Amino acid sequence: MIDSNSILLFVTDATKSASFYSQLLGQDPVDASPTFAMFILPSGLALGLWGKAGVEPAPAAMGGGCDVGFRVATTEMVDELHAEWQGKGATVLLPPTNLDFGRSFVAADPDGHRLRVYNVAEG
Results as ranks from 00 to 15, higher is better:
Met1Gly: 15
Thr12Val: 11
Leu93His: 03
His113Ser: 02
Val11Ala: 13
Pro29Ser: 03
Glu122Pro: 07
Leu115Thr: 00
Thr35Asp: 14
Ala53Met: 10
Val11Ser: 09
Pro110Gly: 04
Leu9Ser: 03
Asp3Ile: 07
Asn98Cys: 13
Leu93Asn: 06
Ala107Gly: 13
Ser19Met: 13
Ala121Thr: 05
Glu122Lys: 11
Gly65Thr: 06
Ile40Asn: 02
Val92Tyr: 07
Val11Tyr: 07
Ser6His: 10
Gly54Cys: 04
Gly89Pro: 04
Val120Phe: 13
Pro34Ser: 02
Asp3Asn: 07
Ala121Gly: 09
Leu99Ile: 14
Phe101Cys: 08
Ala46Lys: 13
Asn98Tyr: 02
Gly69His: 04
Pro34Asn: 08
Gly44Lys: 02
Gly69Phe: 11
Val72Trp: 06
Met1Cys: 12
Asp109Leu: 04
Gly51Asp: 15
Thr75Ile: 10
Pro96Phe: 07
Val78Ser: 06
Pro95Thr: 14
Val106Leu: 14
Gly64Pro: 07
Val68Asn: 02
Glu80Met: 12
Gln23Thr: 03
Thr75Cys: 07
Met77Glu: 15
Ile40His: 02
Val106Pro: 12
Thr91His: 14
Cys66Lys: 01
Gly102Phe: 13
Ala60Glu: 13
Ser6Arg: 12
Gly89Ile: 09
Ile7His: 01
Val72Glu: 08
Val30Gly: 11
Arg103Glu: 02
Phe39Glu: 00
Leu9Lys: 00
His82Gln: 05
Leu49Ala: 05
Asn5Lys: 06
Ala108Cys: 06
Leu94Pro: 00
Ala32Glu: 15
Thr12Leu: 08
Pro29His: 03
Val55Lys: 13
Ile2Gly: 03
Ser22Glu: 04
Asn5Trp: 15
Lys88Val: 04
Gly102Lys: 10
Gly123His: 09
Thr75Ser: 12
Pro34Lys: 07
Ala60Gly: 11
Phe105Ile: 06
Ile7Pro: 00
Gln27Cys: 06
Leu94Met: 15
Phe70Asp: 00
Gln27Lys: 09
Ala37Arg: 01
Pro95Cys: 08
Ile40Arg: 12
Glu76Trp: 01
Val55Arg: 03
Pro95Gly: 12
